[in-house]
């Protein structure tokens, strides 16, 4: 029994491996605060995406479901924030509350019927909702101003206190990411989170133990949609501009990359993935024309050598007690 791999590890070398990507991520954040400038913007984007990916990880990592359309919830909330603050001069917090409510309502309408069905109905429905919301953003010009987008959105503000400096924004975003991550950790360690993880493990066994699978899948979907909505609203206030492309399919691809690079199903994975994947294009910027090539190669190498993501790097070490 003692030879079995334990989930937690007290081995110092192993701990070091766990700590390495964290050291990189924290180092980069600290560097951004010190150096300022463009790097702060890169890290701010990373933090906004981290919020999005932490939520996606609850639905995909913990509950084992698939969604290609969480960008829709970011878009719904982001555009609501943009329109209500830029056109109607609402308070950012109030506008976000409205955006969140709209995103959750749409998530409920999409999730309620599809999550009851087995198979890939939800994945297809989410893909559709992502595309539909994108179409609305481009076509409903009287409200969204189409491809031109909306500018003049009020900056990030909490209860009347506006955050204007780039460093200040990044600091606020880091705090929000930590809170979002704490909430996710608490969820995972609870009866609620165990039910989601059980569904990922075996729906039949979960039902045999009295877990209402459809109910919990819907709850996970709504929780992750709320995270996406928060990310969407944060984005428009940080950048003070929004256009349909911001929440396009590109967002889904990037979020998936971050989720898998960081480590799907792990607590720290989303943050690590968001930081590291945001840094990759910057690292290869010097290669000019070949930037995309190196970026792609970098990703492939990461996924080959750390298939469970950076948060599970320590798994790569040979285990003690095993031949």
């Amino acid at each position: 029994m003692t030879n079995l791999p334990a989930i937690t590890s007290r081995d110092p070398l192993r701990r070091g491996f766990v700590a390495l990507p964290w050291a990189v991520a924290c180092g980069m954040l600290t560097y951004a605060f010190i150096a300022g400038g463009y790097f702060v913007t890169v890290m701010s984007f990373a933090m906004i995406y981290a919020v999005f990916v932490i939520g996606l990880n609850i639905f995909m990592g913990t509950a084992g479901q698939v969604s290609f359309g969480h960008n829709a919830f970011a878009a719904l909330s982001g555009y609501t924030s943009a329109v209500l603050t830029a056109t109607y001069y609402w308070e950012p917090i109030a506008a976000f509350a409205a955006g969140l409510a709209l995103a959750l309502l749409v998530a409920l309408v999409v999730g309620w019927p599809t999550l009851r069905l087995k198979g890939h109905y939800l994945a297809m429905a989410t893909l559709a909702i992502g595309l539909i919301v994108y179409e609305i953003a481009t076509q409903w010009q009287s409200v969204t101003q189409g491809y031109m987008g909306i500018s003049g959105i009020s900056p990030l503000a909490f209860w009347g206190y506006e955050i204007v400096s780039e460093r200040g924004k990044l600091f606020a975003l880091v705090l929000i990411v930590l809170l979002a991550s704490l909430a996710a950790a608490r969820l995972r360690a609870s009866r609620f989170g165990r039910a989601l993880a059980a569904i990922a493990g075996s729906e039949d066994a979960a039902r045999a133990l009295g877990i209402d699978v459809a109910h919990y899948k819907l709850a996970a979907f709504l929780v992750s949609a709320a995270y996406a909505a928060l990310a969407g609203s944060l984005f428009v206030h940080v950048v003070e501009f929004v256009s349909p492309e911001v929440f396009g399919l590109h967002m889904v691809v990037l979020a998936f990359t971050m989720l898998y690079v960081g480590g799907i199903g792990t607590l720290g994975g989303p943050i690590l993935g968001a930081v590291i994947v945001s840094l990759l294009p910057e690292m290869f910027r010097g290669f000019k024309d070949y930037q995309d090539l190196f970026y792609g190669a970098g990703l492939i190498i990461l996924l080959i050598y750390a298939p469970k993501g950076l948060a599970a790097l320590s798994d790569l070490l040979p285990r003690k007690g095993r031949a």
Binding site: R191, A195, A198, G201, A205, A206, L209, I211, G265
Partner: peptide, 19 residues
């Protein structure tokens, strides 16, 4: 056998306490 293979031994039983 239908275990939650992704969970620890202890967590498997904790899920059993759901009801």
């Amino acid at each position: 056998v239908q275990l939650f293979q992704n969970l620890s031994v202890l967590e498997n039983i904790k899920v059993g306490c759901h009801l």
